[in-house]
Design a protein around this nucleic acid. Structure first.
Lengths: 148, 148
DNA sequence: GTACAATAATTGTATATACAAATGTATGTT
DNA sequence: AACATACATTTGTATATACAATTATTGTAC
């Protein structure tokens, strides 16, 4: 990936600016690839993220704040994100008995099924995206990202 | 930045998945910081991007396709993005005389002024975001990002 | 127990974005 | 010149997101 070529600029940028643009371009590319994988399942990256969080609960219900703090990309409105998932039959929502301000959100069988179907395809996509990296390089990249 | 801590997971992920999540988290953080810098100017990252492209034209008008191919994050609808900038008085749009299918978009004095004001503050923000990196590390990071 | 603040989620509203379809213009072929 | 095709942008529509305001519930101080 050549930054200057992609954004069609001939002027040379300071290394700092170039790095930040480079990161943005890379993540755009990754998001595109993953969205393409999810598209046939009619699920957005955000919705997928919520489903994975709920699966990680192992049956234990989650409330909105829990989901929110675990999301990779925070959303201002998780209520409506969950609404969509309910419509699709992937999650259930009930009012928490102990604290009626809270809601309890659980993934359904249907939700688990679709995640299972997606898992393999996504894994392949992840390998494809990172095909040019060996383990050492991946570690190096993670080390550098830790500095942010 | 510790990935597992941020997304509050206790399970350990494969290195590939972890890397991709790590990248997303980093770029979210960067975008947030930059959006905060732009907020007082009532300009979105996308709008700012278009203005910079137009400034890079050095007075030469750009049409929509040119803008589109140079944008860091491609948008499906640059027309309306430009609409917003016109409303704010930062760009002008006229129909191209030579080819009336095309439009000619130029940045105004007002647009140049606001870019000038933003430049310095943004530069500071970029330094702040990358404060933990030395030149060598930035080069390393760019090298690794080239592999995508 | 009542009043008040804090918490959790929802709703309203404005704006942003994705995607498809439509419009208007130019170009190439015969 | 007439037609089909390609091109550049705009518009329509559905959905997504940001942010503020609202509702409902709980906890706490008095």
């Amino acid at each position: 990936m050549n930054v200057e070529e992609i954004i069609k600029t001939n002027q040379q940028m300071p290394l700092e600016k170039r790095t930040l643009i480079h990161l943005a371009l890379v993540v755009n590319k990754i998001d595109e690839e993953i969205a393409t994988v999810l598209k046939p399942f009619d699920i957005s990256i955000q919705q997928f993220n919520v489903l994975r969080i709920l699966r990680g609960q192992n049956g234990k219900p989650a409330n909105l704040s829990t989901i929110n703090e675990r999301m990779v990309t925070k959303m201002s409105n998780t209520t409506r994100l969950v609404d969509k998932l309910i419509l699709k039959g992937f999650v259930n929502r009930t009012v928490c008995l102990k604290n009626r301000r809270k809601v309890e959100i659980v993934i359904t069988e249907g939700g688990l099924n679709i995640l299972n179907k997606i898992d393999g395809i996504l894994f392949e996509a992840e390998k494809r995206i990172l095909k040019n990296f060996d383990k050492t390089e991946l570690h190096e990249l993670n080390e550098l990202l830790n500095k942010f």
